[in-house]
Nucleic acid binder design. Structure first.
Lengths: 224, 224
DNA sequence: TAGTTTATTTCGCCC
DNA sequence: GGGCGAAGTAAACTA
């Protein structure tokens, strides 16, 4: 990994064109071949960058260092004109052991399946990822009256989630053994438009509180 | 901007929980208060980060430096355990003049609105971002015969763009003042599936040449 | 390998 | 400030 602080101007020509006037910036060159140009703001987002695979061609004219970064496949170009180097260091980091994540939709599905009564008193799980010809239904369960309920689960409930559930319901309701199947649209956050569309199709909406669901868990490893 | 290369382990607890085992990494601390942890791959994406506004609390125990980064509003936490510093430097960059972009959909919409006759002789603009209950229609205009035309604009014309336009058309055609409303699906590139679906629903497809549209413009700054 | 869905999405616009 | 759509989306998963 090479860290360069330099006064530079940058041009990107590719999927769009963009220009950065001369200013001091961080140029981050990683071992994977990527190049990114950072200002002292925008959090972790660079002003400009090039993803691997790409090649860097260095040249010099009139004291200006010209770095031309060309993307292998697309031919996109990132051109850095460096007027002055303020810092330049290289560091050997090696391969990273990697990141362990927890808390995405898969986990939300587990949690809801484990606490299916969140949807209502007397609910019982039939199964998760109930297979159909057009894809798996996130959760299939029964309500207190024994009626079948198909649950579509999203972190953010959008209009196309409702469309998806609608297709499942249409299919499931052709099965005499299951019929009638009711729909529940469950998400951490449901967009107003999605709520309207769901209401229009007699689909119930349930807002899930992830922390609350996780809080119910008996043995969740906590850091604090 | 502070650049630290250090052997560290990292934990993030917030919208999800994530753990990084001990390894040498770049810790990037920007003037905006953000902190990000980079490996030597994943292009410009950090392994872990914290956005402003956040505070960093530094402490030390048994030779391990503990940096606790806490997000102001949400209380999310990023905890860095630093075993060894391999590099540490700070740099004054100042505010960045900023980025000039060109070629995104917003601009495409402007261009098409300015040259609405690209869609056909005698077309006139009603308005961009025409508001409806289910979201804004990109462009609403009239054709040579005075018929209303709803335009959905995409950079890449996919099947859900056609679905979206279909919903708009269904809604707009309930308005007696506008009815009948015809649909035009305009994009730089239209996928075959989208073209078929559009044809099936009597929606016209128009392929836009961005460079050509821009070429019509009288004074566009060009880099090359 | 290609299509689909998620993301600590982030970002920007408009109301 | 909230809502919504786009992103040089990227990345992960699946068929």
């Amino acid at each position: 990994m090479r860290l360069v602080i330099a006064r530079c101007s940058v041009d990107y020509v590719g999927r769009l064109t963009a220009h950065l006037p001369l200013a001091p910036r961080l140029i981050l060159m990683k071992a994977d071949g990527s190049v990114s140009v950072h200002a002292d703001d925008r959090a972790f987002k660079p002003l400009n960058w090039m993803n691997p695979p790409c090649t860097v061609r260095e040249s010099e004219e009139d004291g200006t260092h010209l770095w031309t970064v060309t993307h292998g496949k697309s031919g996109e170009k990132l051109i850095l004109r460096i007027e002055e180097f303020l810092h330049d260091s290289s560091h050997e980091l090696g391969a990273d052991p990697g990141l362990q994540k927890d808390g995405v939709e898969a986990h939300l599905q587990e949690l809801l399946a484990d606490h299916i009564t969140t949807l209502g008193e007397g609910y019982t799980l039939i199964r998760r990822e109930y297979p159909t010809a057009i894809g798996p239904v996130d959760i299939l369960c029964r309500d207190a009256e024994g009626g079948t309920v198909a649950v579509e689960l999203k972190r953010r409930g959008d209009i196309d989630g409702v469309e998806q559930l609608t297709r499942y319901l249409e299919l499931l309701n052709r099965d005499p053994a299951l019929k009638p199947v009711r729909g529940v649209f469950a998400a951490q956050e449901i967009k107003p438009q999605a709520r309207v569309l769901a209401g229009d199709r007699d689909i119930d909406c349930v807002t899930l509180d992830y922390d609350e669901l996780r809080g119910i868990e008996p043995d969740v490893p906590r850091l604090f």
